[in-house]
Simulated scan of single mutants.
Amino acid sequence: MTSQSEHDVFLSFRGEDTRNNFAVHLYQALDRNGINPYKDDKELRKGEEISPALLMAIEESKISIVIFSENYASSTWCLDELVKILECKESKQQVVLVVYYKLEPSTVRHQEYSFKDALAKHEEKFKDDAKVQRWKTALNQVPKLCGFHLKINQDEYEFIEEIVQEVSTSLPNRFDLNVAENPVAIQSHVNYVIKTFLCIEENDTRMIGIFGSGGIGKTTIAKEMYNLIAKKFKDRCFLADVRESSKQNQGRLGQLQEKILSNIHSRIRVDDDHQGMELIRNRLCHKKLFWFSMMLIIWTN
Rank of each mutant, 00 (worst) to 15 (best):
Cys237Ala: 06
Leu253Ile: 07
Glu48Asn: 01
Glu6Cys: 02
Cys88Asn: 05
Asp8Pro: 01
Asp176Ile: 08
Leu171Phe: 09
Val66Ile: 07
Thr2Lys: 13
Glu158Phe: 00
Glu123Ala: 00
Asn282Lys: 09
Leu86Trp: 00
Val9Cys: 03
Leu171Ile: 14
Asp204Phe: 15
Val242Lys: 08
Lys259Met: 10
Glu59Thr: 02
Pro172Glu: 15
Ile50Leu: 07
Arg236Trp: 07
Asp176Gly: 06
Leu97Asp: 08
Leu139Ile: 12
Tyr157Pro: 00
Ile152Gly: 04
His265Ala: 12
Glu112Ile: 07
Asn282Cys: 05
Gly217Asp: 06
Ser5Phe: 11
Arg174Val: 09
Gln94Thr: 06
Val184Ser: 02
Ser266Gly: 11
Lys287Phe: 01
Trp299Cys: 14
Val83Ser: 03
Glu112Met: 10
Glu90Ala: 06
Leu171Ala: 12
Val142Ser: 12
His274Asp: 10
Val83Ala: 04
Leu239Glu: 01
Pro52Cys: 00
Leu296Tyr: 15
Lys131His: 11
Asp8His: 13
Val179Lys: 00
Gln165Arg: 15
Phe290Gly: 02
Arg32Ala: 07
Ala240Thr: 12
Leu44Thr: 03
Arg236Cys: 08
Ser51Gly: 02
Pro183Lys: 01
Gly47Phe: 04
Pro37Cys: 13
Lys151Asn: 14
Asp80His: 05
Glu70Leu: 04
Phe148His: 11
Lys89Asp: 01
Pro172Gln: 14
His274Pro: 03
Leu289Lys: 05
Leu44Pro: 02
Lys231Gly: 05
Ser213Val: 10
Asp31Phe: 08
Val184Met: 11
Asp31Ala: 11
Cys78Asp: 05
Arg45Lys: 09
Glu123Met: 00
Arg32Asp: 08
Lys223Ile: 12
Ser5Ile: 08
Lys195Met: 14
Asp40Arg: 12
Val98Cys: 10
Ser168Phe: 06
Leu284Asn: 02
Glu161Tyr: 00
